[in-house]
Nucleic acid binder design. Structure first.
Ligand SMILES: [Mn+2]
Ligand SMILES: [Mn+2]
Ligand SMILES: [Zn+2]
Ligand SMILES: [Zn+2]
Lengths: 136, 136
DNA sequence: AATAAATTTGTAATGAATACAATATTATAA
DNA sequence: TTATAATATTGTATTCATTACAAATTTATT
């Protein structure tokens, strides 16, 4: 049982359960911005009775509770991560992995009247590993 | 028939057709970042035989040809726009409209080895109109 | 222990996007 | 022009991520 995951849930007043702890623990230890399906497949081994609906339920609960954030960089699936300090995302055109990148230092040129709640920066290009390999 | 739309297609060496001209024309005159479905519904009146598959086919063709760009700010549907000068996007939490916003002046803090092909900035918050109205 | 509340689970439904084959249109050759 | 090939559109079926919903299970309260 993951003490850190339990603490994260308690800090956000979300009642812990085996499934919730496992989801948070997975996100804490796997900073790969997984899809709901990837989380399900990763946890289905340790929780054989797990349902995919539970994953969706928990992700919604965690998002409403301010524990996770979803990422729309991929048009196929929604991806998730634990909310940590501000940062941007880089998706590699070649290997499709999503990297955490330091946030740009930006001066936003917002017209009069717009109020920002959230600002997301998405990069696409080639990651360091794929730059070295010749693209097949 | 829209002369401008025809020119845009010709400039990108895409053979014109009634359907292609109408799609480009719609995007040119309606800067609302529509979904494939919205485009279909808008054009189905003037082209009664239109198929939704055609809209998807054309949007893919236009994107490959460098005429349009898709936007992932909305997790439900992919949205489209004509490629114009660089700018950011603002999605209103209240009315869900997507606004063009001047691009931020950013200094990107990319680690060694990453090569950017594209960079997108998405804002979320409240638009000027919705700021005035009381939220029901 | 009994009851109520919360959580998980399985199944069915939704809906955007894609696959694919048939039809229609346009271009090229004869 | 007519025949033939290439291209484009259309309709239908399929895929698959996500949601809806009700039954079953687990946990909390009396
Ligand atoms: Mn991240
Ligand atoms: Mn735009
Ligand atoms: Zn890569
Ligand atoms: Zn608004």
């Amino acid at each position: 049982m993951d003490k850190t995951a339990l603490q994260i849930l308690e800090q956000h007043s979300i009642r812990p359960s085996v499934q919730r702890i496992e989801v948070v623990s997975y996100l804490y230890h796997n900073r790969i911005h997984p899809t709901a399906d990837e989380i399900f497949n990763a946890l289905n081994g340790t929780i054989p009775t797990l349902s995919k609906t539970t994953i969706y339920n928990i992700l919604k609960l965690l998002e409403d509770g301010g524990v996770v954030k979803h990422i729309n960089i991929d048009e196929k699936n929604v991806r998730y991560e634990l909310i940590i300090g501000e940062h941007a995302h880089f998706r590699c055109d070649n290997c499709s992995r999503i990297f955490d990148i330091p946030a740009p230092t930006s001066k936003h040129n917002l017209p009069e009247g717009f109020t920002i709640r959230e600002s997301d920066t998405y990069y696409q290009g080639i990651c360091p590993e794929c730059s070295k390999k010749p693209i097949v």
